[in-house]
Design a protein around this nucleic acid. Structure first.
Lengths: 295, 295
DNA sequence: TCGTGCGATACCTTTTGGGTATCAGACAAC
DNA sequence: GTTGTCTGATACCCAAAAGGTATCGCACGA
């Protein structure tokens, strides 16, 4: 059974005239007659009653007409829907990001993507860098937003933003009154850093900054993620060094301050597997590139 | 878009292996690869992710798989249903018959057809010969059961049965006591005959019998159909001459008697248009032929 | 590093589909 | 009745498409 035959059949069934149907189908009449004859032979059924000058559908033809209409409609729907998903206009992307990204440009990027592709479903989750790396490699996620980035040759990457580091201090800290704090003055403080595992991690970046400033923090508290670290700061366990964007969201018990001292800053980078050419993912990376350029 | 391609695509989508899919489809692997590639090109969409050794469906591929399954199922259903109707195993026949046929072999014939083709819908109606002829020619009906038959070269016909004529007498008639009545003794009676129009009709057949017996009925009442004639007999208006089979159904106020005299009998004949080769109709004629032979 | 497995490509053959010319039958007008 | 016209079917040819075999290229595992 050929698909084209059904289309031909429908044209003849509607025109009830081979010549006109052929014109409508933009073809000559003889091949059309032959195709209908083939269809009839294939079904072993008479579809048209040709005994009069005006042809008419047989009962079997009428039934086939109903079915053919539905089948062609479905086919068209399948065609369009597949193309839509194939072009990335619909479907699903699984995105994971580091906890500290939830305050900065990422939410805006996601809103922007949503406005371009409202029919693409986004499955969001938070992970630390190591988990992001594993999830991306094992294809559990499609997009990883890491800080500052994941080292892997298998990934395609787009820099989302660079930002400076600032201090997150308990609001009862003796430094909280000052508008500017020297990093070296904090040598006697407890630093709350993350993640605990695996090392080296962002915690080591901060410890490296301290070392460069010539001190080692008097106390060190390691948490599994950014959210836990900020919680510890808010209850006065110690202070933390965090990306600037985090400071834009106020949190009870925590105040943010810039500091004087070595500030290499940090970055957010969006990653995808190089071999994941899914149009949804490609589109997300494109939007990211344009978005980063604009901000 | 070709149907074959969808079938091929489904095989590959299920096997996730071109070689195995090709084996299952009983073809070589290269043309299968090409067909899938053509399908992808046609949709402008990647259906399989071939970046790993094990191929996998893309999102678009998964969507197309759903649709393709449904489309092929529908196609199969269309195929089967059309064949069924095309073979006469389902569908509809419009049958009309003379009123006097509803007591004889016709109901049994119809039951017999029903048992052979339970899924064929029968639309039944009663008409006189002239109406049957017109309805059959104008394709308002497919089958006409007439008495004794319709004269038209355009009809295919099967003799259903021959039968003798008998008298239908009012039960208060002076003849109703006799087991046998001479036709010539009825010359002074009123004959109730049918149909009134158009002439000549069955009424004229009966009048011809009287003429051959050498008399003309004293009274003549013409009705439009058999049912009305029997009703008039039952209320004592006169007597009628009817097919033998009618006598098998008793009716209050009417008794049936054979008669002595010229009895050419009558027949029931089943007609269809010669150019109506609808399988349902052909099957009905076949059943009629076998049925008539058996009885 | 080399084999092995798998999909893609090259190239040929067969099948199918479409085109033009023409036939055959039905219907209408004269 | 005869003839012209309309319509679907048939004959025949050519182009396009689909299938087959041989082989390539690439990735993965030993």
């Amino acid at each position: 059974m050929e698909f084209k035959r059904l289309k031909y059949f429908l044209a003849v069934a509607e025109e009830l005239h081979f010549g006109r149907a052929a014109t409508r189908l933009d073809m000559a009449q003889p091949p059309l007659s032959r195709q209908i004859a083939t269809l009839e032979a294939e079904l072993g059924v008479q579809l048209f009653d040709r005994s009069r000058s005006q042809i008419r559908l047989t009962q079997a033809g009428a039934v086939l007409q109903d079915h053919a209409r539905q089948i062609l409609d479905r086919l068209d729907a399948a065609y369009r829907e597949t193309k839509l998903i194939g072009s990335g206009g619909a479907g699903r992307i699984r995105i994971a990001f580091v906890g500290s990204a939830s305050h900065g440009l990422l939410p805006t990027l996601i809103k922007s993507f949503r406005s371009f592709y409202p029919d693409v479903e986004l499955a969001l989750s938070a992970m630390n860098n190591a988990e992001l790396q594993h999830a991306l490699v094992s294809r559990e996620i499609d997009i990883a937003v890491a800080r500052p980035e994941l080292k892997d040759e298998e990934f395609r990457r787009e820099l989302l933003c660079r930002e400076r580091l600032i201090l997150a201090l308990p609001d009862n800290s003796r430094f909280s009154g000052q508008s500017e704090v020297r990093l070296t003055d904090l040598a006697d403080q407890t630093f709350v850093l993350y993640p605990r595992r695996p090392r080296p991690s962002y915690a080591d970046v901060v410890l490296g900054i301290c070392e460069r400033e010539g001190f080692k923090p008097a106390g060190l508290e390691l948490t599994q993620d950014f959210q836990s670290a900020i919680s510890l700061v808010s209850v006065g366990v110690g202070l933390s060094v965090v990306p600037e964007s985090v400071g834009r969201t106020q949190r009870p018990g925590v105040i943010y301050r810039p500091y004087v001292g070595y500030n290499p800053g940090t970055a957010l980078t969006v990653h995808a597997r190089l071999d994941n050419r899914a149009p949804q993912v490609m589109n997300f990376m494109d939007i990211t590139r344009k978005f980063a350029r604009k901000h």
